[in-house]
Design a protein around this nucleic acid. Sequence first.
DNA 1: GCTTGACCCTGTAGTGACTACAGGGTTCAG
DNA 2: CTGAACCCTGTAGTCACTACAGGGTCAAGC
Lengths: 147, 147
Amino acid sequence: MSASTLTIGQLGNAAGVNVETVRYYEKVGLIQPPPRSASGYRHYPAGVVHRLHFIRRGRELGFTIEEIRALLTLAHHPDEPCAQADLLARQHLAEVEAKIADLTRMRDELSKLAFCDGHAVHDCRLLDALSCHDDHCSVEAVSASPT
Amino acid sequence: MSASTLTIGQLGNAAGVNVETVRYYEKVGLIQPPPRSASGYRHYPAGVVHRLHFIRRGRELGFTIEEIRALLTLAHHPDEPCAQADLLARQHLAEVEAKIADLTRMRDELSKLAFCDGHAVHDCRLLDALSCHDDHCSVEAVSASPT
DNA sequence: GCTTGACCCTGTAGTGACTACAGGGTTCAG
DNA sequence: CTGAACCCTGTAGTCACTACAGGGTCAAGC
Ligand SMILES: [Zn+2]
Ligand SMILES: [Zn+2]
Ligand SMILES: [Zn+2]
Ligand SMILES: [Zn+2]
């Protein structure tokens, strides 16, 4: 193989991305289909590793594939204003903060329930919290089990 | 319709669960298939609403369907010890905390990048952070675009 | 030359917890 | 008796991969 090209395995190794994932990124159009050898093997120009780096870092920050697609396009136009990229970042930050708030609510509730000093199910904090407290409803009322 | 049974729509309304979701819970075995009318309509005994409440609250705490299935089974045995339920809660709490840690890392990085005072793409904090900084790599090196 | 093992290929199906139709049938009030 | 609101089944879509199945290719050592 030519010294200046990489197999898909070498590319994946260099960029820290699974081989299957590289093929997936090709399928969804994040990276270009590379030239193939006579037997059908992909041979990547060395520069592609940087594009994969970019994608991987974007994923580590939680950007979606579509957001990364947009950011890649923006990165190709270095002289244009970056307002669009910053907007994406701020929107994504807002989503991340919303998820944190959601999980924090769960964590606070769970930490009240997970360390239960009841010794039987009918005194369990967790199962009590999940059951509803209508007059005609109790832990035991969650019946009609399918199993 | 009999006064003591509910259609799927009434059940969904009473429990705060989408009709499609109720059918989904039946399919995965969280609720029993109810009796049907001659024309095939589901008619639920009123008590099922409590089981759905339980499921919904479990989902709001982030438990998976399988965890809720286990918790429902535990709730049917009120005289047994609740150690199993508490273990599930603590394991789930640990997962939630791990997710929070992950998202917090993203948030901290994003908040450094999202309010960028650069005015062009080649000075953008976000795009700079995504690009790699090998000697031969820059924001512009993320090329070989498929579009 | 031959074998062996590591690599590569395509295509499909699975993940979780729903959601969104498409394409019908039923019920009930006006 | 008509129309809206409800119900039915079954399938496909979401997201970003991951895991095969069932093959083909390549390079090193014998
Ligand atoms: Zn690079
Ligand atoms: Zn307990
Ligand atoms: Zn109840
Ligand atoms: Zn910027």
